[in-house]
Amino acid sequence: MLPQKRLEQIQEMENLLGQSEAFLLEAEQFLEKWQQMLPTITKLEHYYFDGDWRQDYQAYEQGEIPEEMPCGVLTEDAIFDVGVTQRSLAISYLKLVAQILDTPK
C-alpha cells in the first residue's frame, strides 16, 4: 500500500480536480452568456454613440418624457460605463489567456 502521504496527496488532487471541473463549467457558461450578451451591448452602444440617445437626452432635459418613466439609460455615463467595463474585462481575460497559454506543460 502507498504511504499515507501519497494517499493524502491523491485525495487532495481529487478535490482539486473536482473544484477545477466545477469552475471550468461555470467559466464556460459565463462565456456563453457573454457571447449572447454582445449584440445587446452593441445595440446599446450604437444607441449612445450613433443613435437617438442625444435627442432623447435633450427631450428628457426639456421635460418631454413622463416623470414616472425610468430613464437611467439617459444618464451621461451609464452606457459609456458599460462599454468601458466590458473592454476592461476583455483585456483582463486576454491577459489571463496569455498567462494560461504561456504556462509550460
Rank of each mutant, 00 (worst) to 15 (best):
E61R: 13
M37L: 11
K5C: 07
S92K: 13
G63Y: 07
G63P: 03
L94M: 15
Q35S: 12
F49Q: 15
Q55M: 08
L24Y: 05
S92L: 09
T40N: 09
I65M: 11
V84K: 12
R54P: 01
F23K: 03
Y47D: 11
L101R: 11
L74N: 11
V97N: 09
D81A: 08
M37W: 10
V84L: 14
D50N: 13
Q62A: 15
A98F: 04
P104T: 00
L44R: 05
T42E: 10
D77M: 00
N15F: 04
L101D: 06
E64Y: 08
L74S: 09
F80G: 10
D102M: 04
V97I: 08
A90W: 04
M13Y: 14
E32Y: 03
M1T: 08
I100E: 08
Y93G: 10
F80C: 07
T85F: 02
P39W: 05
T85S: 10
E12I: 03
R87Y: 12
I10P: 01
L74D: 07
D52Y: 08
Q36M: 06
G72P: 00
E64W: 06
G63D: 12
Y47N: 09
P66T: 10
E76K: 09
Y57S: 12
I65N: 09
G83K: 01
P3M: 04
L25A: 11
L44T: 09
Y57K: 15
V73E: 09
T103F: 13
L17W: 10
P3G: 06
F30W: 04
L7C: 05
L38Q: 15
L101P: 00
Q9G: 02
T40L: 09
L74V: 06
T103H: 13
T85Q: 14
I79L: 15
Q11K: 06
M13N: 12
G63R: 05
V73A: 08
D52F: 06
K105V: 01
W53L: 06
E61Q: 14
M69H: 13
V73F: 04
E45R: 03
Q29F: 01
Y60R: 04
Q29I: 02
R6I: 11
S20H: 07
W34G: 01
M13L: 15
K43Q: 14
L24I: 10
E21V: 07
K105D: 10
L7W: 06
L17G: 02
E64P: 02
L38V: 09
E64S: 14
L44F: 03
L16H: 06
K95D: 10
P3N: 10
Q19N: 12
T40W: 05
G83V: 00
Y57V: 02
G18L: 03
